[in-house]
Design a protein around this nucleic acid. Structure first.
Length: 300
DNA sequence: GAAAAGTACCGGTTTACGTCA
DNA sequence: ACTGACGTAAACCGGTACTTT
């Protein structure tokens, strides 16, 4: 895979020239569950109990939907091989089922859904996997835990599973799916943002192309060319090719006459010629036409 | 250091379930 | 009441990356 963006950390940097404070910015939804806390890359996993500690350990004081002290609860599960990703109901799954300890599933078998009875631990006679919808309370607790941290270490998984009356594998799957959902949502938002940026750039491009066309047309008709109001976009010194400011006012034109002399003069770094203002057209600083539009133009 | 095993995660897919017309 | 389409979410599969032995 390589990128290992770990779901929420979608690093789509949308720096396509969109101004950061434009409307697009407000479009960006805060789908990152923990934006200030980068998702733990599983290559450098930090033990959850180091970075995810609930401040209040008094569980009785909280609702059951808030803040499991997994470090305490995990003690109950300590004896079970913690980190085995238990497969679930499917007896058809091959390699995962092989390493699934069957014994500890009995308790969590009932997922407080009405279908729990025919679950048969996934190894019974029913070959079809039964999908057990989580209850509202289970989902709430899972969501709450996910907001605290979107990955679980084995201990946390065990404890959460214990609290939820689920299998650890179910908790693991839920977290995986939840990360995938979050990433998908973030991707959708990013796509929308990119789309807007693209539309804006397309519009800018269209406008600039139109302006270029107008300028080319005007250059072919010198009379109009001299009477034209200055261009709204960039101008350039013909010799040094330095870009001047846009629209030339009279004073700016005078300044431009001193810094960007027309008629083949270069803008030498000398004292500006203030005594002899050169009457130039506002187009005097047009960019050099390196590729003549009309190669058959008179050369004199 | 190389190889194998174990583990955790991810993307993609399958499938059960709930809803609605 | 039944049914089929559809969306959602639970579960699975194969692969990758990393650690441990």
């Amino acid at each position: 895979m390589g990128e290992k963006d770990d779901g929420l950390g979608l690093g789509l940097s949308l720096s396509l020239g969109c101004k950061p404070n434009e409307n697009e910015s407000s479009l960006r939804l805060n789908l990152m569950e923990k934006p200030s806390q980068p998702m733990q890359n599983h290559q450098h996993r930090t033990p959850w109990n180091e970075i995810f500690q609930f401040p209040d350990r008094n569980q009785d004081a909280r609702s059951c939907l808030r803040g499991i002290d997994v470090n305490q609860a995990a003690d109950f599960e300590e004896e079970n091989g913690v980190s085995s990703p238990n497969s679930t109901v499917s007896s058809l799954s091959g390699k995962r089922s092989e390493r699934e300890p069957i014994g500890d599933e009995n308790e969590a078998e009932r997922t407080s859904c009405s279908h729990g009875s025919d679950d048969e631990d996934g190894n019974g006679g029913d070959l079809s996997r039964k999908k057990l919808r989580l209850t509202k309370e289970q989902s709430l607790l899972l969501e709450d835990t996910f907001k605290e941290h979107n990955t679980l270490n084995p201990r946390q998984k065990q404890a959460l599973a214990k609290q939820l009356n689920l299998r650890p594998r179910q908790v693991e799957v839920w977290f995986q799916n939840r990360r995938a959902r979050t990433k998908l949502k973030q991707t959708e938002v990013d796509c929308e943002l990119l789309k807007r940026c693209c539309e804006k750039l397309t519009e800018d491009n269209r406008r600039l192309q139109k302006e270029v066309q107008e300028l080319r047309a005007l250059k072919l008709s010198p009379q109009l060319y001299m009477q034209m109001s200055p261009p709204t976009t960039l101008t350039m010194c013909p010799s040094c090719e330095r870009v001047a400011v846009s629209s030339l006012s009279s004073s700016a034109a005078a300044a431009a006459s001193s810094t960007s002399p027309a008629n083949g003069q270069t803008c030498q770094s000398g004292p500006p010629n203030v005594q002899r203002p050169i009457p130039i057209s506002p187009w005097a600083t047009l960019p050099i036409q390196r590729r003549p539009l009309d190669a058959s133009a008179p050369k004199s």
